[in-house]
Amino acid sequence: MQTERVEVVANEGVGPYRLLRLRRSRLQPGTPGQFFMLEAPGRVLPRPFSLSLAPTRELGFLVEAIGPGTRAIARLEAGEEIRVTGPLGNGFDLSVRRPLLVGGGIGVAPFPYLSERLNGPPALLGFRTAHHAEAAALVPNAEVVLDPTLVTDALPDDPGDVLACGPAPMLDALEGLVPGAQLAREAPMACGYGACYGCVVERDGWYVRLCVEGPVVRAGDGAV
């Protein structure tokens, strides 16, 4: 496990989101779908983010300010330093033949990096508004649908190898529609490295830690 204090290089607007670019330091970008814990200045706990972009010498994270922690992170300015720990957890399995990226809202976050690693596969992205959909510009070959159309409405009959990230109802729907789909799930998380047992999801009647067993899980493997 690597943990470093790293400098903020830039904080840029992408629609309603912030793209936080951090100096990479000695941290490795890891596999798409893995996540990092970012210090939230003034808060007790860090917050988990999957890596969005991995340009040379930088790590990029897409941030939606939804609470006190994410607001503190979204307000970071170039030159400030925060503690970053990662990469953590299990990312997407990249040995796929016909990948289709399916995302909803801030679930687009891991896709720019994932798309790069998979050489620009097709993507299907759903957003609440056109303003939110500006984030789709970060993902090549993306088809965008807006509320009230759902990504599951626009899913092809034979979707191939689905790699998905988005709100729980979207992932739950995909779980039923696409057995074997890779789903990047999320849960409130204190540590990100297996210590707190806070981020559990149910699997086969037991609770397992999403930070250790996930965050990418297979549809139909018993996890809900």
């Binding site: 808060r43 998380m189 559990v200």
Partner: peptide, 23 residues
């Protein structure tokens, strides 16, 4: 012990709450 159902943690002012339940 299976422990308590999620949501199990919440950050609060000056600390956090946990409800793991001895899993």
């Amino acid at each position: 012990r299976r422990g308590n159902p999620p949501v199990r943690i919440a950050e609060v002012e000056h600390g956090m709450l946990n409800s793991i339940g001895l899993q």
